[in-house]
C-alpha cells in the first residue's frame, strides 16, 4: 500500500484545515494539537508551504497561517511534490538486475501503477477533498462494521 512521508501528510492536514476555515488564521500549535502531531515538524512543513506560495503567515494577535492558494485549483499532487519531488530513482536505483528482462518487466508494471497514482493525485483538488470530508462516504461502512450496542439479550 502506498504511504506518504510524514511531512507530506502533515502538509495535507494543514492545508485542508486552513482551507476549511479560510477566514480564520490558525497557529501551528492549534493544527498540531488537532492531529496529535509534532508542532516542531509541522512548523517546518508550513514554512515549506509558505515558500511554495500555498500559505502565508501573520504575526501577533489574530495572526497565524492562512491558505493563499486557490483551493479549487490546488491539487494533492501540487502539495505532495513539494515534499516528495518526482523523478526520484525507483527502489533499487541502478541495480544491475533492473537491466534484465525481468527487471524491465517489473519496471513496466511499477510505472503503470505510478501513472495511476499520479493521475489520481493530480485530479483531486483541495476543494474536492473538503467535499469528501463533508460527505463522509466511509461512514456507512464504519457503521456497518461498528459493534451493535448491547440490547440486554
Amino acid at each position: 500500500m502506498m504511504k506518504l512521508q510524514k511531512a507530506t501528510s502533515f502538509a495535507l492536514f494543514a492545508v485542508l484545515d486552513l482551507a476549511a476555515q479560510p477566514e480564520r488564521p490558525q497557529s501551528v500549535i492549534e493544527i498540531a494539537e488537532r492531529y496529535g502531531i509534532s508542532a516542531h515538524h509541522l512548523a517546518k512543513v508550513l514554512r515549506d508551504l509558505g515558500r511554495a506560495g500555498i500559505v502565508n503567515s501573520a504575526r501577533g494577535v489574530g495572526g497565524g497561517y492562512r491558505l493563499v492558494a486557490n483551493p479549487k485549483r490546488l491539487t494533492l499532487l501540487d502539495i505532495i511534490q513539494i515534499f516528495e519531488p518526482p523523478g526520484r530513482e525507483p527502489a533499487g536505483g541502478n541495480d544491475p538486475e533492473l537491466a534484465t528482462d525481468a527487471g524491465r518487466a517489473l519496471r513496466l508494471v511499477l510505472d503503470e501503477i505510478d501513472e495511476h497514482v499520479l493521475a489520481t493525485f493530480r485530479s483531486i483538488t483541495v476543494s474536492t477533498m473538503l467535499k469528501l470530508m463533508v460527505r463522509r462516504p466511509w461512514s456507512a461502512s464504519l457503521e456497518r462494521s461498528a459493534p451493535k450496542a448491547a440490547t440486554g439479550r
Binding site: K72, E115, A119, S123, I124, T125, T128
Partner: peptide, 13 residues
C-alpha cells in the same frame, strides 16, 4: 484519458 486533468478534476469534484 488519465492525463485529461481538467475533466478528471471536474468529475472528481
Amino acid at each position: 484519458a488519465r492525463n485529461n486533468q481538467l475533466i478528471l478534476s471536474f468529475f472528481r469534484s
